[in-house]
Design a protein around this nucleic acid. Structure first.
Lengths: 120, 120
DNA sequence: CCTCACTATAGACAGCTGTCAATATAGACG
DNA sequence: CGTCTATATTGACAGCTGTCTATAGTGAGG
């Protein structure tokens, strides 16, 4: 079956106890960190929020690019990083490409960071 | 009073709507990203979990350093990054230095990432 | 005060990252 | 097929990051 060392970052994150409950193993930390790294850039964070908050759940790249004062390849690069981290899905429809947030990924991260303020 | 542009990263994060609810402004994204960046490293993520999960709420550096196969200055460096991001507090008691998790910071990040899986 | 243990800082260096201009790819439509 | 629009890839480059060794600061105890 699925080896714990071979999980996708998102699966790995979903299996971690919240930070405040028990410490991560070195392996867990190495699996989850790339997910946070993908979000830890102002442009990607905003891209993620634009995608996640968009009515209909998906956004055309042609709607995202003009929201930044960056070249088109740079925006494309950031979208690729989010996609490769597993935070967004891509779908091509004709000339246009649509990105959709993977809610489970953000939920897993949110759960990981929660519950850390409860100790004395 | 406090200018929105002058908030601590944690205050800024606490004021953001969840990613799935409404998009971040460029300013918000730039304020929050450093917080994620501080966590987006396997060593720091594990340090944070060791600190946050420790009974009593605080951990001596002398207990953290041996948990990693890294030089003492490197661990000290990572602790400094977490501290400067506002994720942990420091307190010196005699020869030893204790780090304590700032629960509010993790809660603010957790809330920011939550609620993104609810849209259709 | 001297010394010892614990922690932090400084400086160096390889590797990663964000950005751009240039170019390629992919589909739509004459 | 040719061309146009939308998106991705490539290659280059400056700046940042994680790590180390060497050294400094800080408090405790003889």
């Amino acid at each position: 079956m699925s080896n714990l060392l071979d999980l996708s970052p998102i699966e790995a994150a979903a299996r971690c106890s919240p930070l405040g409950r028990e410490p991560l193993t070195a392996t867990q930390a190495e699996q989850v960190a790339p997910l946070l790294k993908a979000l830890a850039d102002p442009v990607r964070l905003r891209l993620m929020s634009l995608i996640a908050a968009h009515a209909g759940g998906e956004v055309c790249v042609c709607h995202l690019t003009p929201a930044f004062e960056l070249s088109q390849p740079t925006v494309s690069h950031h979208l690729k990083v989010l996609h490769e981290a597993g935070l967004v899905d891509r779908e091509r429809r004709g000339t246009w490409v649509y990105y959709r947030a993977r809610g489970a990924a953000l939920e897993a991260l949110s759960a990981l960071l929660s519950g850390a303020g409860l100790r004395t």
